[in-house]
Protein backbone atom coordinates (compact mmCIF):
# COMPACT_ATOMS: atom_id res chain seq x y z
CA UNK A 1 0.00 0.00 0.00
CA UNK A 2 1.10 3.51 -0.68
CA UNK A 3 1.95 5.71 2.25
CA UNK A 4 -0.72 8.28 3.10
CA UNK A 5 1.89 10.93 2.36
CA UNK A 6 2.58 9.90 -1.21
CA UNK A 7 1.54 12.62 -3.67
CA UNK A 8 -0.47 10.13 -5.71
CA UNK A 9 -2.83 9.88 -2.75
CA UNK A 10 -4.15 13.30 -3.76
CA UNK A 11 -5.69 11.71 -6.84
CA UNK A 12 -6.20 8.09 -5.86
CA UNK A 13 -9.60 8.53 -4.22
CA UNK A 14 -11.05 10.13 -7.30
CA UNK A 15 -9.35 7.61 -9.56
CA UNK A 16 -11.24 4.93 -7.64
CA UNK A 17 -14.43 6.92 -8.07
CA UNK A 18 -13.77 7.19 -11.81
CA UNK A 19 -13.22 3.44 -12.11
CA UNK A 20 -16.36 2.79 -10.09
CA UNK A 21 -18.25 5.14 -12.37
CA UNK A 22 -17.04 3.35 -15.49
CA UNK A 23 -17.90 -0.04 -14.00
CA UNK A 24 -21.45 0.83 -13.02
CA UNK A 25 -22.23 2.65 -16.23
CA UNK A 26 -20.79 0.09 -18.60
CA UNK A 27 -22.01 -2.81 -16.47
CA UNK A 28 -25.53 -1.47 -16.50
CA UNK A 29 -25.44 -0.83 -20.24
CA UNK A 30 -24.21 -4.33 -21.00
CA UNK A 31 -26.73 -5.98 -18.69
CA UNK A 32 -29.57 -3.94 -20.13
CA UNK A 33 -28.60 -4.81 -23.70
CA UNK A 34 -28.05 -8.51 -23.22
CA UNK A 35 -30.02 -9.79 -20.27
CA UNK A 36 -32.34 -7.22 -18.76
CA UNK A 37 -33.91 -8.33 -15.47
CA UNK A 38 -37.20 -10.16 -16.16
CA UNK A 39 -39.83 -8.02 -14.46
CA UNK A 40 -39.47 -4.44 -15.59
CA UNK A 41 -42.25 -3.16 -13.35
CA UNK A 42 -41.24 -4.94 -10.17
CA UNK A 43 -39.73 -1.77 -8.73
CA UNK A 44 -36.19 -1.10 -7.71
CA UNK A 45 -35.68 -4.37 -5.81
CA UNK A 46 -33.93 -6.63 -8.27
CA UNK A 47 -30.56 -8.25 -8.71
CA UNK A 48 -29.18 -5.51 -10.92
CA UNK A 49 -29.96 -2.71 -8.49
CA UNK A 50 -28.86 -4.74 -5.51
CA UNK A 51 -25.53 -5.43 -7.16
CA UNK A 52 -25.13 -1.74 -8.01
CA UNK A 53 -25.97 -0.70 -4.47
CA UNK A 54 -23.66 -3.30 -2.95
CA UNK A 55 -20.81 -2.08 -5.13
CA UNK A 56 -21.63 1.53 -4.29
CA UNK A 57 -21.53 0.92 -0.57
CA UNK A 58 -18.41 -1.22 -0.74
CA UNK A 59 -16.53 1.40 -2.74
CA UNK A 60 -17.77 4.27 -0.58
CA UNK A 61 -16.85 2.42 2.59
CA UNK A 62 -13.35 1.66 1.42
CA UNK A 63 -12.88 5.29 0.39
CA UNK A 64 -14.06 6.51 3.77
CA UNK A 65 -11.75 3.98 5.39
CA UNK A 66 -8.84 5.41 3.42
CA UNK A 67 -9.79 8.90 4.56
CA UNK A 68 -9.83 7.70 8.15
CA UNK A 69 -6.49 5.94 7.75
CA UNK A 70 -4.88 9.00 6.21
CA UNK A 71 -6.26 11.22 8.92
CA UNK A 72 -4.89 8.93 11.63
CA UNK A 73 -1.44 8.88 10.05
CA UNK A 74 -1.54 12.63 9.65
CA UNK A 75 -2.38 13.21 13.32
CA UNK A 76 0.31 10.81 14.40
CA UNK A 77 2.88 12.52 12.25
CA UNK A 78 1.92 15.98 13.48
CA UNK A 79 2.10 14.81 17.09
CA UNK A 80 5.46 13.09 16.76
CA UNK A 81 6.79 16.06 14.89
CA UNK A 82 5.75 18.40 17.67
CA UNK A 83 7.51 16.14 20.17
CA UNK A 84 10.78 15.89 18.34
CA UNK A 85 10.83 19.63 17.85
CA UNK A 86 12.53 19.42 14.50
CA UNK A 87 11.20 22.19 12.33
CA UNK A 88 13.56 21.62 9.41
CA UNK A 89 11.94 18.51 7.95
CA UNK A 90 9.70 18.89 4.93
CA UNK A 91 6.72 18.37 7.17
CA UNK A 92 4.55 21.10 5.63
CA UNK A 93 4.64 19.39 2.27
CA UNK A 94 3.86 15.98 3.71
CA UNK A 95 1.09 17.47 5.77
CA UNK A 96 -0.27 19.37 2.83
CA UNK A 97 -0.38 16.23 0.72
CA UNK A 98 -1.96 14.16 3.44
CA UNK A 99 -4.62 16.75 4.14
CA UNK A 100 -5.58 17.10 0.52
CA UNK A 101 -5.56 13.30 0.20
CA UNK A 102 -7.89 12.83 3.16
CA UNK A 103 -10.23 15.43 1.73
CA UNK A 104 -10.25 13.86 -1.72
CA UNK A 105 -11.06 10.48 -0.20
CA UNK A 106 -14.00 12.06 1.60
CA UNK A 107 -15.09 13.77 -1.61
CA UNK A 108 -14.73 10.55 -3.58
CA UNK A 109 -16.70 8.58 -1.00
CA UNK A 110 -19.50 11.12 -1.01
CA UNK A 111 -19.45 11.26 -4.79
CA UNK A 112 -19.76 7.49 -4.91
CA UNK A 113 -22.79 7.53 -2.65
CA UNK A 114 -24.44 10.35 -4.59
CA UNK A 115 -23.79 8.62 -7.90
CA UNK A 116 -25.12 5.27 -6.78
CA UNK A 117 -28.14 6.32 -4.79
CA UNK A 118 -30.53 6.64 -7.76
CA UNK A 119 -30.37 2.84 -7.86
CA UNK A 120 -32.52 2.88 -4.72
CA UNK A 121 -35.54 4.15 -6.62
CA UNK A 122 -35.10 3.61 -10.33
CA UNK A 123 -35.87 0.51 -12.36
CA UNK A 124 -32.68 -0.47 -14.17
CA UNK A 125 -33.40 -0.80 -17.85
CA UNK A 126 -36.08 1.65 -18.96
Amino acid sequence: MLSPFHPLQMALGLIVWALYFVVIYSGLSVVCTHSPPPAANAGALNTVNLALLALTFAVALSLFYQAWRGNKALRKEVASHAQSGASEAPLPTRQFIARIAVATYLVAGTATLLTGLPALVLIPCV
Binding site: L117, P118, V121, L122, I123, V126
Partner: peptide, 13 residues
Protein backbone atom coordinates in the same frame (compact mmCIF):
# COMPACT_ATOMS: atom_id res chain seq x y z
CA UNK B 1 -32.61 14.90 -7.42
CA UNK B 2 -35.43 14.03 -5.05
CA UNK B 3 -37.81 15.93 -7.32
CA UNK B 4 -36.19 15.17 -10.64
CA UNK B 5 -35.63 11.43 -10.47
CA UNK B 6 -39.23 10.46 -9.67
CA UNK B 7 -40.41 13.05 -12.19
CA UNK B 8 -38.26 11.45 -14.85
CA UNK B 9 -39.55 8.02 -13.90
CA UNK B 10 -43.13 9.26 -14.20
CA UNK B 11 -42.48 10.85 -17.58
CA UNK B 12 -40.98 7.66 -18.94
CA UNK B 13 -43.87 5.45 -17.94
Amino acid sequence: LAAGIPAGQYLIT
